[in-house]
């Protein structure tokens, strides 16, 4: 009985202290991140009622976009190598073969009309330092929706988690533990953004899934003024990207979860034996 009382007091002190230095301190230091908004409600509806014409979209893309972007699945190869591209634009323009898979449709339409605004980066760019990709706000909503329809028509059947990551983030971020290096060389990126896009190998551990969900959806939620763009991913792609970060950064998670139960059970068994043995010995002592 006395031992039980001691145990209760011990648990109370340790439990209270633990609550203070872990859950409570985290709650104070890291405010709850804003929920991700996959409808991108702040953007106006370019005109989703229009049914885009993929054929016309193709013509528009070939006239306007392939000077900078490759679309390798359609035979448009990059005109310059990554280093030259990076030197010209500050960031390597991404290949657009998978644009139909990655981006929310209305986001993509808004992005074409005004990239910096859709990315929530207007504070970073100005007349003197324009965003590297021009705004196509001179196009009619119909033309923009044609382009969106075109990307939809050429989208890949399925993307692996790795492909999603490479296409959505790979122009800026490396992932050394998966053998991926950023297309844009670090030095160029640093001078272009004013901060370095970090290697993301361990970010699943250092930031955690919860933070990433909010951050990738809109970086300004958590890092006000940051140069990291809102990328405009659909919920599905974003989950794939985070899954890839976990597969790379916490590769042994499944092994850990599976083994833990057995080790714990082993000590439950050992405890049973130890209790029985102690009783046996103490039978003569009490």
């Amino acid at each position: 009985m006395r031992e039980f009382k001691i145990l209760v007091v011990l648990f109370a002190i340790v439990g209270f202290t633990y609550y203070g230095i872990e859950p409570y301190a985290h709650h104070i230091m890291h405010p709850e991140p804003v929920e991700a908004d996959f409808n991108f409600k702040d953007l106006k509806d370019i005109d989703s009622s229009l049914k885009g014409d993929a054929q016309n979209g193709k013509t528009l893309v070939e006239a306007n976009c392939v000077a900078c972007h490759s679309i390798e699945s359609q035979g448009h190869m990059p005109l310059m190598d990554d280093a030259t591209n990076a030197a010209s634009y500050g960031v390597v323009p991404p290949d657009l073969s998978t644009a139909g898979n990655l981006y929310n449709k209305n986001y993509l339409a808004n992005f074409i009309a005004n990239p910096a605004k859709a990315m929530h980066l207007e504070h970073k760019y100005s007349e003197t330092k324009p965003f590297p990709m021009p705004s196509y706000n001179w196009m009619t909503p119909k033309e923009i929706m044609d382009i969106v329809a075109y990307f939809e028509s050429i989208k890949a059947k399925e993307l692996t988690h790795k492909e999603s990551f490479e296409n959505a983030c790979g122009r800026c971020h490396s992932m050394a533990y998966a053998g991926i290096s950023a297309k844009t060389p670090g030095k160029v990126a640093t001078s272009h953004f004013g901060s370095t896009p970090p290697d993301l190998s361990q970010y699943i551990k250092s930031r955690g899934e919860h933070y990433l969900h909010s951050f990738i959806n809109d970086p300004q939620n958590l890092l006000k003024g940051t140069a990291m763009p809102r990328v405009g991913l659909t919920q599905e792609t974003q989950e794939d990207v985070i899954a890839f970060m976990e597969e790379t950064g916490d590769r042994k998670k499944d092994e850990r979860n599976a083994l833990g139960i057995w080790v714990i059970l082993f000590f439950v068994l050992m405890s049973g034996l130890a209790i029985a043995w102690k009783r046996e010995i103490w039978k003569d002592l009490h």
Binding site: R256, N257, L259, G260, V263, I264, F267, V268, M270, S271, L273, A274, I275, W277, K278, W282
Partner: peptide
């Protein structure tokens, strides 16, 4: 008695570890 306490403690310890 020590060994008993240690074994019971290890259940908690390995819960934390995993």
């Amino acid at each position: 008695k020590d060994i008993m306490v240690i074994n019971i403690f290890m259940i908690f310890f390995f819960y934390l570890v995993f």
